[in-house]
């Protein structure tokens, strides 16, 4: 018996050590970037254009490019994602068609971003002659984040109590009226969670973006202009050794953005869970 207790103690200690190592890694990654990067941040860095290939100046075009690209991608993917989720959760039962759709969604989720980059380049940039542009990058990203949006939206829709649908239908609402008036408003927090996750993914994506949106320094004037996102800018600064300081600064901005998005998502999900528990 004592031997069993001792082996339990050893095993649990090892597991605990592994857990704390994981947490230490998280703390180190975030701490390291912020420690090196925060001193680089200033109004000038955030709100001026880069000079001298990025050796000096700021990252304004990259911030604008990142926001424009992410928002465009979500604007395209959101209706598709929510529409698919509504179809899967409300308009059909499990059939061969839904199996195919679910399988397609899973596959899409697993495709590495470099493949999306290749595809976006050959399809949007070359075949559809969009060139390196925000629009080509956004469409590529939209396909990438679609599975996340579908999954989170479907989960949110399924968490709406069945009885509310029955009541709505018993009062003479059509399926679609029920979806619009009862289901979607109450699935909203979950759908927003999906949007935030997609937003986070778009901000950090590099491989798919660099081949589709390009890496122009200039402030994009329209959806057909090439643009450089923060992640791409950071990659070029770091990889080509242009400026380690500016790279750290950009990394800090990226990490802060990710922290903000995750924090917001977590707060939203917390509220959502509380509501569900009621």
């Amino acid at each position: 018996m004592n031997a069993h207790r001792a082996s339990q103690r050893v095993a649990v200690s090892i597991l605990a050590a592994a857990t704390f190592l994981c947490l230490a890694i998280v703390a180190f990654v975030i701490g390291f970037v912020l420690e090196k990067g925060l001193p680089q941040l200033s109004w000038e860095f955030l709100f001026t254009k880069p000079r001298d290939m990025g050796k000096a100046g700021g990252i304004l075009p990259a911030i604008v490019g990142t926001l424009a690209l992410s928002l465009m991608a979500i604007a395209v993917a959101l209706p598709l994602g929510v529409g698919t989720a509504v179809y899967l959760a409300e308009y059909t039962r499990e059939t061969r068609v839904t199996k195919v759709i679910r399988f397609g969604t899973d596959c899409l989720a697993g495709i590495p971003s470099i493949i999306f980059g290749l595809f976006g380049y050959i399809f949007f940039v070359t075949t559809l002659k969009m060139g390196w542009s925000l629009i080509a990058g956004a469409l590529t990203l939209a396909i990438m984040v679609l599975p996340t949006l579908i999954r989170t939206s479907e989960e949110a829709i399924r968490s709406v109590p069945q009885s509310w649908r029955e009541v709505s239908m018993s009062l003479g609402a059509t399926r679609w009226e029920t979806v619009r008036k009862v289901v979607l408003p109450n699935a909203l927090p979950g759908i927003v969670t999906g949007v935030m996750l997609s937003f986070g993914r778009s901000i950090g994506e590099t491989a798919a973006v660099i081949f589709t949106a390009g890496s122009s320094f200039r402030l994009p004037k329209s959806a057909f202009d090439s643009a450089r996102t923060l992640a791409v800018h950071f990659y070029i600064l770091a990889r080509e050794g242009i400026s380690t300081d500016k790279a750290y600064g950009t990394a800090a901005v990226l990490v802060i953005a990710v922290l903000a998005v995750n924090g917001l998502t977590y707060a939203l999900m917390g509220g959502f869970m509380k509501r569900k528990a009621r």
Partner: peptide
């Protein structure tokens, strides 16, 4: 606390990981 903290890792851009790999 730990679950969202570790999920945070999934959100950090891969280029940032690469950079830390290079620098550290």
């Amino acid at each position: 606390v730990a679950k969202p903290a570790i999920e945070l890792l999934a959100g950090i851009p891969s280029v940032v990981f690469g950079f830390i790999g290079v620098m550290v």
